[in-house]
Design a protein around this nucleic acid. Structure first.
Lengths: 260, 260
DNA sequence: CGTCCCCTTGAATGAAGTCAATACGCGTGG
DNA sequence: CCACGCGTATTGACTTCATTCAAGGGGACG
C-alpha cells in the first residue's frame, strides 16, 4: 500500500531510497478499518495525528444548519485526511468514509521527527498539501463558473488523473464507487440533474459508468468539454527536475498525466 | 499597520512582547504600493517570499480557458497572500489588487529564521493558514448550496467578521470597496442578479451599502439568513486559553466576534 | 461636455431544481 | 424459489431561480 503514497509523492520531489524506507517504516503500524458511512473526523475535533488513507475513498464535507450538505473534496487512497501536517489543530469540517476503507494514524511528533531527518519528505508533504489546496481552488471555480456538463466532466477528469498519479488506472478505466447522490453532493447539483447530465455524457460517448467502474471513452474531448486545467497538480517543477535526467522513469509517468 | 496583523494573530495564539517585536521588525522593510488592477502574483509563478497585505484589498482568482473568472477569496489587510509560508512553491492561481494597496514581501528564509526563534509566531502563522483554508471550505459550501440571498448574506457576514478581527469596523459599519461586478465574481452570480439580491437585502433592512461603506442593519437576522457559521475562524482553542485568564482583553474581543 | 464606469430596470429565456411516480437490482428471509 | 424491502437509477411534468440581452440613468473625471 505505501507504494501508492511513494508514487504520488515522487511526482513532486525526487525521493532517495532512504526517504522511501522512512516512509514505509512510519506507515508500518496498526491499521484502522472503517465501514462505509463511518465518520473519520467530525467538525470541531482536534487532530493529534495525520491520517493517511491506504485504501477506499472518503468525503471531506460540511453541513449547513438546515441539513444541506456539500462535499468539499474527495479523498482518495494515498491522500492525507488532515490539512495540518505538523501540529494539533481544530478542524472545521468532517470526513466520512465513502466506501469501506483502511487508514493509518501517525502522531504529529513522529511526522515531525521524520521530516527533520528526511527533508525531502517534508518538501513532498508540503507539496502534497498545496495540491489539496489547489483542488479546493478548482472546486470553487468548478461550482461557481461551470455548468452541469462541464462540472461533471471536470470531476471525472480530476478523479481519473489523481488515480493515474497513484498508478491505479487500467488503460482508460478506473475505479469509481460513487452513487449519483454522491456526485450531486460533490458538484452542488440535484441528483435528478446529475442523472440527466450523465445520460448526456453517455450520449456524447464521453464516458461509460457502470457498476463502480468509470471508463473514459474520449479523454481529449472530455478535457475540452471540462475546460480541464491540471495546473493544480503542481507538477511542473519536478517535471523540470526530471527532464534534467534525475528520474527518467517518473518523468515518463508525469508526461502521461499532463499530456492532452 | 502591523498592529492589525498582531491583532489578528492574537486571536489564534497568545503573543509575548518579544513575539510582537519580532513581527514588527520583520515587517519593517520597503513597502510596495500597487495600483488597483495590478497583478500581485500570476498563475505559474514561483513565490520566493510571502506577501503580507498592509492596506487595501485583493482578489485571489482563477480563470477558465474561455475567459470566465472566479474569485476564490477576498484578501484583506493583514492577510498573507501566499499559501505556502516556509518554502518556494509554484502557485496555481493569480492575485490582483482590488483597490490601491500596500504590501511587504518577506523572503522565506527570513520567515523561517523568525519562526525558529519565536515558536508562537510559527503557530500563529500556521493557524492563520488554516483559517484561509477554512475560508475556501466555506466558499465551496456557499456557492454549492446557498441561493443568491444566502450567499450574499454569508459574504457580508464573513467580510464583516474578518474586519472585526483586525479591529477596523466602526460599530455596525465597515469598509467595503467592491463593485457589484466584483460581488458577482466572488459569489458566482451574474451582476444583474447581484443587483437584484442587494435590493432584496435592502428591502428587508438587512444591510445598507452606499459608496464603499457597508452597514449591517440587523446582524442576527443577517446571520440567520446566511446560515452563517464562524467555525472556520478556528477561534475556540485560544478562546479557551484566554478564558483561562491569559489574555483577558483579547478574550473580550473574541467574545464579540463569536457572539450571535 | 462627453466618456467611461457602475448601477438599475424590464422582458424573455434557459438551466437546474422539485415533486412524484416508476423501475431496477440485490440481498434477506420466509 | 419467490416475496419483500431498500437503496439507487430513471423518467415526466412543472416550477423557480438565475442568466441573458438590451436599454437607460447617474456620477466622477478629464
Amino acid at each position: 500500500m505505501p507504494h501508492q503514497l511513494i508514487r504520488k509523492l515522487e511526482h513532486f520531489v525526487a525521493l532517495s531510497p532512504s526517504d522511501k524506507e522512512a516512509l514505509v517504516t512510519i506507515v508500518r503500524r496498526p491499521l484502522r478499518n472503517l465501514c462505509k458511512g463511518t465518520d473519520i473526523i467530525s467538525e470541531g475535533e482536534t487532530a493529534h495525528f495525520i491520517r493517511i488513507l491506504l485504501s477506499g475513498w472518503a468525503f471531506r464535507y460540511k453541513k449547513l444548519g438546515d441539513g444541506r450538505r456539500q462535499i468539499l473534496s474527495v479523498v482518495l487512497p494515498a491522500d492525507i485526511c488532515d490539512t495540518n501536517l505538523f501540529a494539533d489543530i481544530e478542524i472545521d469540517h468532517s470526513i466520512i468514509a465513502a466506501t469501506p476503507l483502511v487508514m493509518v494514524e501517525i502522531p504529529h511528533e513522529e511526522i515531525n521527527k521524520m521530516v527533520a531527518e528526511f527533508p525531502a519528505l517534508r518538501e513532498a508533504l508540503v507539496w502534497d498539501l498545496q495540491v489539496s489546496m489547489g483542488l479546493l481552488h478548482e472546486s470553487i471555480v468548478n461550482i461557481g463558473q461551470r455548468n452541469a456538463l462541464e462540472r461533471m466532466a471536470n470531476l471525472f477528469c480530476e478523479i481519473y488523473v489523481r488515480q493515474q498519479m497513484i498508478g491505479i488506472v487500467e488503460g482508460s478505466t478506473c475505479h469509481f464507487p460513487l452513487t449519483q447522490a454522491d456526485l450531486a453532493a460533490v458538484t452542488g447539483l440535484s441528483t435528478v440533474h446529475v442523472n440527466r447530465t450523465l445520460q448526456e455524457m453517455r450520449r456524447r460517448s464521453l464516458i461509460s459508468l457502470v457498476g463502480k467502474s468509470l471508463r473514459i471513452l474520449n479523454l481529449p474531448e472530455l478535457k475540452s468539454v471540462a475546460l480541464f486545467n491540471p495546473a493544480f497538480l503542481h507538477l511542473s517543477k519536478p517535471a523540470k527536475d526530471r527532464a534534467a535526467g534525475i528520474q527518467p522513469i517518473i518523468n515518463h509517468a508525469a508526461a502521461d498525466i499532463v499530456a492532452a
